[in-house]
Design a protein around this nucleic acid. Sequence first.
DNA 1: CCAAAAGTGTTATGTGTACACCCATGA
DNA 2: TCATGGGTGTACACATAACACTTTTGG
Lengths: 256, 256
Amino acid sequence: MSEAAGASPRAGAAPGLAPTAVTVDVVLLTLRAGQLSVLLARRAREPFGSHWALPGTFVRLDEDLEAAARRALGDETGVTTAGHTAGHLEQLRTYGRPDRDPRGRVISVAYLALLPNLPPPPAPDPGAGDEPDRGPRARWWPVQDLDSPDGPSLAFDHPEIVGDGVERARAKLEYSPLAAAFCEEPFTLADLRRVYESAWGAPLDAPNFRRKVLSTPGFVVAVGARAAPRGGGRPAELYRRGSATALHPPLLRRSV
Amino acid sequence: MSEAAGASPRAGAAPGLAPTAVTVDVVLLTLRAGQLSVLLARRAREPFGSHWALPGTFVRLDEDLEAAARRALGDETGVTTAGHTAGHLEQLRTYGRPDRDPRGRVISVAYLALLPNLPPPPAPDPGAGDEPDRGPRARWWPVQDLDSPDGPSLAFDHPEIVGDGVERARAKLEYSPLAAAFCEEPFTLADLRRVYESAWGAPLDAPNFRRKVLSTPGFVVAVGARAAPRGGGRPAELYRRGSATALHPPLLRRSV
DNA sequence: CCAAAAGTGTTATGTGTACACCCATGA
DNA sequence: TCATGGGTGTACACATAACACTTTTGG
């Protein structure tokens, strides 16, 4: 029988059951200057003071998990994903190692968010005279810098969470039209192609990419206009996100 | 900054933060008589008394989430997946709608388990003189019967969880060697093919299936013996699970 | 005119599919 | 010998990959 749902949670049905904190953490990815980047915030308090951490928050008692993720995103970036035409938010995975937070049992439901490059870099330090050894409160980090020596020191098990989020995003590009979530509408097929190239770190053949995308029903819809030409080259046609939720057949990466 | 990890979970950093119960629920799938089936247990207590529910349990304070899932599985089925040569266990998704349990806030981390057909049907009612209107305490339900009128009434949001688990399993057959988790070793390629056919509800071409599986390195390894012939037909070669963790290219279903 | 970027055409190569055919066993 | 299921061969359709070529813009 289901003990999980069969006993009263408030009565402490399992012996020694103590309150457990539940949080959400958001892996927010975007494309900046051709680099797949993740938003990290500098911690102010111990433990892991001055380390970098994912945007996150406690889940309120009457709040849905996804609503908490949107709230964490908004608190940190000013972005309201609700009703926002661009972007994507999905549950990633739940992290619950008993020792993942030194202060007690904290279970974190991680979300993965994909957004177009935000017009203002999110939450830049408004005070210009900031401490030279602290730097900005939140910033984008190219994911390929995360493992380098001058990369950020991540708090808790956030290295694992970020890694899982990046891998999920890279994999979903293959069989979902999610790449378009990184693009501000309207976008060109070259914009869309650069999403794949940046995420996978390998060039794609532009003619074949075009045919592939256009032959997948509902991936993109033509908007019937051309982009403004910019310094040589034929202006590209413009597109919007289509209604497809999956790619059949998938757009597979070469290597793996 | 990460509020989730930056505040003390025990001090109630978020105003009105009340204890939240965390549970695990397991979608255990197997193949019985050519039918993809899920293990459900009949609830003894309210709410949802006499409804059917997934095996589950509270997460203990110092217990890893996956360990709790294995414990729930063992309590319900007697199966110990730890060290068991067959089978597969992975996290599915976390369900946290505020109203999913009428008694309070209960967040459930769902796991997906795949096992070969268990030699004894798990947890049959040992007392033969059972109440005619109650039936067994736990039983396998073919997933295709779940939505029918004589299917089980599921408790809480377990219909959604079961649906997500079945869909995850069907999808993972395409791009992972997980189908072999349903097979007792050693197995024949026909056994493996029947897993796909049962899960997807469509026949596969046996010659092409054989070539596909054998051409994927590490999917299966030949054991160098043949199965005992059983009433006509050439005896099949025997195989064991290989070391591959993904299928490149995938084994795609026809429709979708 | 040239350079650059978008878009079209063409061909070689590989992969999936369908199905004919042979092999090994029990009855 | 037939029926049954395992296993091999093969031809066709289709998708991908590579790259030549045309179009449209700015300088």
